[in-house]
């Protein structure tokens, strides 16, 4: 326990809010230096990805859909990774993939959490008809197989990136809603919420100051995974012939396009898959660190 007293006084203020006079940057830097090794790796990975995503056109040696040689050229002839099934540079596609994939996944996940999280907390706090209405709507949406539903909706509305984000975001938000509501329900019945209500605190205050901090850890853990589920949904959709439109490079579709190679023990398809996996690991390392900090447990190792 870093601050055992505060734990017993109230559970609502974790971690302690940074004091204004110290400067947020300084606090952040101090926390960062204290962070465990894995979290630092995670942060480095995330920063690298963001950098690559932002400066893709500068870093990449070729254009996103430029054909530079024959299909599946070996790495020796088109360093460092060879070419893909259309003769485009694999390295370039990976770099542009960071931009498209990470961007889309981030926007989609944030959208899903804003929507699902807000509704989940509200449903748990308010209860009654509001809870019934949202919960039943979510039940209906979740009862329809997500992949099939996404397929139907994308076919109806077209597979533009915006549609992809909205459709996957809404479908994902139902999952977020469930978890947010479930953990909020546990918190809502706690004594300190009761006392806050008796004190006459408003809905906004209770939600933001009392409930949100207490349900943050499971939500953040969920965020780390939901984030990578978006890649997977996109790649599964591309397996079924939908997903992001070519020639836009995205890792999910890149795995799909080159996947038959793995049958012969060739490693090219591992590259985009590894790009997804490394990012997932990085994000989740940081999530773990956050989880650990907010849990108020002291580092035991």
């Amino acid at each position: 326990m870093t601050e055992p007293e505060s734990q017993f006084e109230s559970v609502d203020a974790m971690p302690p809010p940074p004091r204004r006079d110290e400067g947020r940057l300084a606090v952040a830097w101090r926390e960062l230096k204290k962070a465990p090794f894995s979290a630092k790796i995670g942060l480095i990975i995330i920063v690298t990805y963001i950098f690559v995503a932002l400066f893709a056109p500068v870093i990449a040696p070729y254009g996103e859909s430029e054909i530079i040689g024959p299909q599946f050229e070996l790495a020796e002839k088109a360093p460092p990774f060879g070419t893909d099934h259309l003769g485009r540079d694999m390295f370039t596609r990976l770099i542009y993939g960071a931009r498209n994939t990470v961007g889309i996944a981030l926007v989609t996940t944030v959208f899903a959490f804003m929507l699902g999280g807000t509704l989940g907390i509200l449903a748990a706090t308010l209860g009654g008809w509001m809870d019934q209405l949202v919960s039943r709507t979510v039940d209906v949406l979740m009862a329809i197989p997500a992949l099939i539903f996404a397929m139907l909706l994308l076919t109806i509305f077209g597979t533009s990136v915006v549609n992809l984000i909205i459709i996957i975001g809404v479908l994902d938000s139902t999952r977020v809603f469930r978890i947010a509501r479930a953990v909020s329900l546990n918190v809502v019945v706690m004594d300190f919420i009761e006392s806050a209500r008796l004190r006459g605190e408003g809905l906004g205050w209770i939600t933001l100051r009392e409930i949100l901090p207490n349900i943050m850890p499971p939500l953040v853990a969920e965020f780390g995974l939901r984030f990578c589920f978006v890649f997977l949904t996109i790649s599964a959709l591309s397996f079924l012939g939908l997903g992001i439109q070519p020639p836009t490079a995205d890792w999910g579709s890149m795995v799909r396009d080159t996947s038959t190679l793995i049958t012969y023990g060739e490693l090219v398809p591992l590259l985009p898959a590894a790009a997804i996996a490394i990012l997932t690991i990085g994000v989740n390392f940081v999530v773990d660190w956050f989880l650990h900090k907010t849990s108020g447990l002291k580092d035991e190792h």
């Binding site: 299909q71 038959t260 190679l261 049958t263 012969y264 060739e266």
Partner: peptide, 11 residues
Amino acid sequence: CDIKTLHLLQR
């Protein structure tokens, strides 16, 4: 057959 990997299958 997958045209893209046909040369590998032929091995």
